[in-house]
């Protein structure tokens, strides 16, 4: 039950939605509603107006552009992303992360745009989003701007998005040949949120050695982060078990790990190293396939 009254509108263009958001009173954007509605039921969010994006059809599309960029509309649900053939083939870690969100019903309604805008520190999709060096496209009263995923996640429920901006698209650059990716997650046994989730994106050279490695980690710290020490340790190696283990061991270096009833900060850091190893192993396997 929602006891706090609010007004509601569902505009048909992004410009109208931006105007509505900038109007009088506290307004919130709603898409799948799977983060916002639970907060409203608890009284933790009490917007005076909801601006629903559901009628803006273009926001649900997944398309590949001429230069190979894969542009995923903010309204694409976790379910659609999981089953999309292009995403599965080219952005495997993202398809896997989307398939691990919540449960079947949550994936049917929840959207990637909503997940990234809400920025729960234990959400799945931020990990592949930063590992693939994606760009977040936002539209505000002054027009459109692109934010690098690495600069986008600022903290718990905190992003670079301004209050009067709407996240419209997540843009994944084309990945080089011989690139493989994977997402490995330790899920909270009840909520299915990530206690730790690691997305690995690895490109190998023709001789099998590691040309480039990117690791995005979620669930472990206040915001998703790139494990740069581990990436550096893996780059240039043969990508064998020893090199993977040595790199994965650095995946929690320098972070302030979250601590709660499920996992202490020490245990979380341990989990990050274990799941980093698993993600890197599978990513390299796929890069070699």
């Amino acid at each position: 039950m929602i006891t706090h009254p609010f007004t509601y509108q569902a505009p048909t263009t992004i410009e109208e939605a931006v105007r509505a958001l900038g109007g009088a009173g506290e307004a919130k954007v709603i898409a799948g509603g799977h983060s916002l509605l639970p907060l409203m039921k608890l009284g933790l969010a009490q917007p005076e107006m909801l601006v629903d994006l559901r009628r803006i059809a273009s926001l649900g599309e997944i398309r590949t552009e001429a230069d190979g960029t894969i542009a995923i509309g903010a309204l694409a649900t976790h379910r659609v992303i999981t089953h999309d053939q292009t995403v599965r083939a080219k952005l495997t870690a993202l398809a896997e992360a989307a398939g691990e969100v919540g449960d079947l019903q949550v994936r049917a309604r929840g959207t990637i745009g909503g997940s990234l805008a809400h920025a729960d520190p234990a959400a799945d999709e931020p990990a592949p989003t930063i590992a693939f060096d994606a760009t977040i496209r936002a539209v505000g009263p002054k027009g459109q701007r692109d934010i690098r995923a690495r600069d986008y996640f600022k903290g718990t429920f905190e992003t670079a998005l301004a209050a009067n901006e709407i996240l419209v698209e997540i843009r994944f650059p084309a990945q080089p040949a011989r690139t493989g990716s994977a997402y490995a997650k330790f899920a909270h046994p009840a909520s299915r949120f990530a206690v730790t989730g690691v997305a690995a994106v690895v490109t190998i050279k023709s001789d099998g050695s590691v040309e480039r490695a990117a690791l995005g980690v979620t669930g472990a710290a206040a915001a998703a982060y790139r494990a740069t020490e581990a990436e550096r340790a893996l780059t240039g190696t043969k990508g064998d078990a020893k090199a993977i283990a040595a790199a994965a061991a650095k995946a929690a270096d320098g972070i302030t790990a979250l601590s709660d009833l499920v996992a202490s900060s020490e245990y979380r850091k341990h989990l990050v190293t274990v799941y980093a190893r698993r993600a890197i192993e599978r990513a390299i396997e796929r890069a070699r396939a």
Binding site: Y8, I30, L37, V106, A108, R109
Partner: peptide
């Protein structure tokens, strides 16, 4: 699509 009707307006 299977949807939790408590989490949709």
């Amino acid at each position: 699509r299977a949807t939790k009707a408590c989490t949709m307006l």
